[in-house]
Deep mutational scan, measured.
Amino acid sequence: MTYKLISNGKTLKGETTTEAVDAATAEKVFKQYANDNGVDGEWTYDDATKTFTVTE
């Protein structure tokens, strides 16, 4: 399945996607992506749209 990340960081804003077997796997990928880009904030997940959002 395709999962989307919306980043509302102070230094990184935008969207990216990943293919993953489940939401937990996608979350690990996205949290590593955010960490690699210096984004640390509040996370939410919408199962209906398969979208994670991180806001700093």
Rank of each mutant, 00 (worst) to 15 (best):
M1A: 13
M1S: 14
M1F: 15
M1D: 14
M1C: 14
M1K: 12
T2I: 14
Y3Q: 04
Y3E: 04
Y3T: 03
Y3N: 04
Y3S: 03
Y3R: 03
K4F: 14
K4M: 07
K4I: 13
K4H: 13
K4Y: 15
K4P: 03
L5T: 02
L5W: 04
L5N: 02
L5H: 01
L5V: 03
L5P: 03
L5C: 06
I6C: 07
I6L: 08
I6D: 03
I6G: 02
I6R: 06
S7F: 15
S7N: 06
S7M: 15
S7W: 15
N8G: 05
N8T: 11
N8H: 12
N8E: 09
N8Q: 11
N8P: 05
G9P: 05
G9I: 14
G9R: 05
G9Y: 07
G9A: 12
K10D: 08
K10G: 11
K10L: 13
K10N: 11
K10F: 11
K10T: 13
K10M: 11
T11V: 12
T11A: 10
T11M: 12
T11Q: 10
T11G: 12
T11H: 13
L12F: 14
L12S: 09
L12R: 07
L12W: 14
K13D: 06
K13S: 10
K13L: 12
K13I: 12
K13N: 11
G14R: 12
G14P: 11
G14C: 15
G14T: 14
E15W: 14
E15R: 06
E15T: 12
E15I: 14
T16Y: 15
T16H: 13
T16S: 09
T16F: 15
T16R: 11
T16P: 04
T17A: 07
T17E: 08
T17I: 10
T17R: 07
T17G: 03
T18S: 04
T18D: 01
T18C: 15
T18P: 00
E19P: 04
E19D: 10
E19Y: 15
E19L: 14
E19N: 13
E19W: 15
A20T: 04
A20L: 02
A20G: 03
A20P: 01
V21H: 13
V21A: 12
V21D: 10
D22L: 03
D22C: 06
D22A: 03
D22Y: 02
D22I: 02
D22Q: 02
D22F: 02
A23K: 13
A23S: 08
A23H: 08
A23F: 11
A23R: 14
A23E: 05
A24G: 07
T25R: 05
T25N: 08
T25F: 06
T25Y: 07
T25I: 07
T25E: 14
A26F: 00
A26G: 01
A26T: 00
A26E: 01
A26I: 02
E27Q: 09
E27D: 04
E27V: 04
E27H: 10
K28W: 09
K28A: 11
K28P: 01
K28D: 05
K28N: 07
V29I: 14
V29R: 10
V29M: 10
V29T: 10
V29L: 12
V29N: 06
V29C: 09
F30S: 00
F30P: 00
F30W: 01
K31R: 15
K31E: 03
K31T: 04
K31G: 02
K31M: 07
Q32Y: 04
Q32F: 05
Q32T: 08
Q32N: 07
Q32C: 06
Q32L: 07
Q32R: 11
Y33N: 02
Y33V: 06
Y33I: 09
Y33R: 03
Y33F: 11
Y33T: 04
Y33E: 02
Y33G: 01
A34Q: 02
A34I: 08
N35L: 15
N35G: 10
N35S: 14
N35Q: 14
N35F: 15
N35A: 15
D36I: 10
D36N: 09
D36S: 10
D36F: 08
D36Q: 10
D36T: 08
D36L: 12
N37D: 03
N37K: 11
N37F: 10
N37M: 14
N37C: 11
N37Q: 10
G38M: 06
G38I: 04
G38T: 03
G38S: 06
V39F: 11
V39G: 03
V39L: 14
V39H: 04
V39N: 03
V39P: 02
D40Q: 14
D40F: 15
D40K: 13
D40H: 14
D40G: 08
D40E: 13
G41H: 02
G41I: 03
G41T: 02
E42L: 12
E42W: 11
E42C: 12
E42T: 13
E42G: 05
W43T: 00
W43L: 03
W43E: 00
W43H: 00
W43C: 00
W43V: 01
T44N: 07
T44A: 09
T44S: 13
Y45C: 00
Y45L: 01
Y45R: 00
D46K: 02
D47T: 07
D47V: 09
D47I: 08
D47A: 13
D47N: 07
A48Y: 10
A48W: 07
A48F: 10
A48L: 13
A48S: 12
A48K: 12
T49L: 06
T49Q: 06
T49I: 05
T49C: 04
K50I: 02
K50V: 03
K50D: 02
T51G: 01
T51H: 02
T51L: 03
T51C: 03
F52G: 00
F52I: 01
F52P: 01
T53E: 05
T53W: 10
T53F: 13
T53V: 07
T53N: 05
V54I: 13
V54S: 01
V54H: 02
T55Q: 07
T55P: 00
E56I: 12
E56S: 09
E56A: 10
E56L: 09
